[in-house]
Design a protein around this nucleic acid. Structure first.
Lengths: 239, 239
DNA sequence: ACCTGAACACCGTTCAAGT
DNA sequence: ACCTGAACACCGTTCAAGT
């Protein structure tokens, strides 16, 4: 892995796989994933479309590599932390990275089935921490899947893009204001709280309306749930 | 809402918003979201591309309507069930619907920020059940967000499409087989179990490798976590 | 090795024109 | 009201040709 950025005689950054990935990330974060195109980033870099294909296989693997770049930015917490503190820290770090590039967020939920050896370190770290917590065998794998599935899933859904369409937003806005309190009494009861940020009800993406409280609650809930499962698995041990 | 399907004199199904949506869903489920196109479904229906636009606003709202159609298929469990049983049943129903149309799954995580009054019933039902469980105020909204965020997020991530690219699969397969047990001891320990289904590690989409056990564990974990939060909120009450 | 220039087979969407 | 036919401005990707 080369860390130096090559430059040509004019001082321009030389075209590079790494450079293309960075440009792609910046472009997506500014204009949204739905407006990303190979030709677009070729324009951005100031080169013919075909030139991109010298450095990059195709569109989907470029996007996968952008996703990989994002994961690289996630810092692994100190291994010596208590397991629940560690999980919470990892979750916070992961979400922070995606909230720095919110419009690229869907990439991770969409394209990252898995991706190269890069991720083995992350997986191993999570497994290690959960092992220290006391999980073993299938229970360990389950706990791992719960953590990663809920974390990545939650943030991915949080960052789901809103249709920018003004007409659409207006329509949802009206439906919300004219909500029938008789038919939906529980919603009516919690109207203001829900309006400050709730899945499905919201009319904005997390770019404009981050669901901080919801995320905090989700992390807390999952950790409590894991603790509870742990106690059932090890009925002999005390606290 | 019309339930009858109109037919023309030749007995062909008349072009309809509803018919288009159904065709779109079928097409996506067969050929994948990445291969969906307006022109493609026009071909499918046997009509000029522009004809679609008479019945449907544009591509993204069509996809949103497909997503809405999917949610309509989710059955709400009986309101009289105990809250934890109810939540588990809802989660199972939701996942079952998406696993019937796995390749359309990403639509829900991607496009459904929110969508018309359709969803108010679902939201109100969840809030009602959690209210009966004992959640109030912000705690109620938090619990709702945790349930919906983890559920939709988890399944969305589970159904993330794998790049069908054979080269890619082979490369991941090799990395996995040649995994360095020294560097990644926890992974090596749980190698077979992880191979049977784990996020990030997997080389297949949930279409071929459903993460049943992981989902079961996630639902269980979230419910246990909510129960634990409930006990902390109501320290006066007993059991 | 790396890029140009042109080409191919596609898109989504619009619009006049038909019936 | 509903569809045709053609057009416009885009795509992703390939390939010969240049340097």
């Amino acid at each position: 892995v080369t860390r130096t950025t090559r430059k040509d005689s004019a001082g321009n950054v030389a075209l590079d796989r790494e450079v293309i990935i960075r440009h792609a990330l910046a472009y997506i974060n500014e204009h949204g994933l739905e407006n990303f195109s190979m030709r677009g980033i070729a324009r951005e870099v100031g080169v013919y479309p075909a030139a991109i294909y010298w450095h990059v296989d195709d569109r989907t693997t470029l996007l996968t590599e952008v996703a990989g770049h994002l994961v690289e930015l996630v810092e692994l917490p100190d291994r010596h932390l208590p397991w629940d503190v560690w999980i919470r820290a990892l979750a916070t770090n992961y979400r922070q990275v995606l909230h720095r590039y919110p419009r690229a967020g869907p990439l991770l939920t969409l394209n990252v089935i898995s991706n190269s050896e890069l991720y083995f370190g992350l997986t191993d770290a999570i497994l290690d921490v959960l092992h220290r917590a006391g999980f073993r065998g299938q229970g360990l794998v389950d706990a791992y899947n719960v953590v990663i599935g809920c974390l990545v899933g939650f943030v991915g859904f949080e960052l789901a893009p809103a249709p920018l369409d003004e007409k659409w937003v207006k329509a949802r806005e009206r439906e919300w204001e004219e909500l029938d309190g008789q038919r939906y009494p529980r919603i009516a009861d919690a109207y203001e709280l829900l309006d400050r940020g709730a899945f499905v009800i919201r009319r904005q993406s997390a770019v404009d309306l981050p669901l901080d409280k919801a995320f905090e609650a989700a992390v807390d809930t999952v950790i409590r749930g894991l603790r509870s499962r742990l106690q059932d698995t090890l009925p002999t041990r005390e606290r």
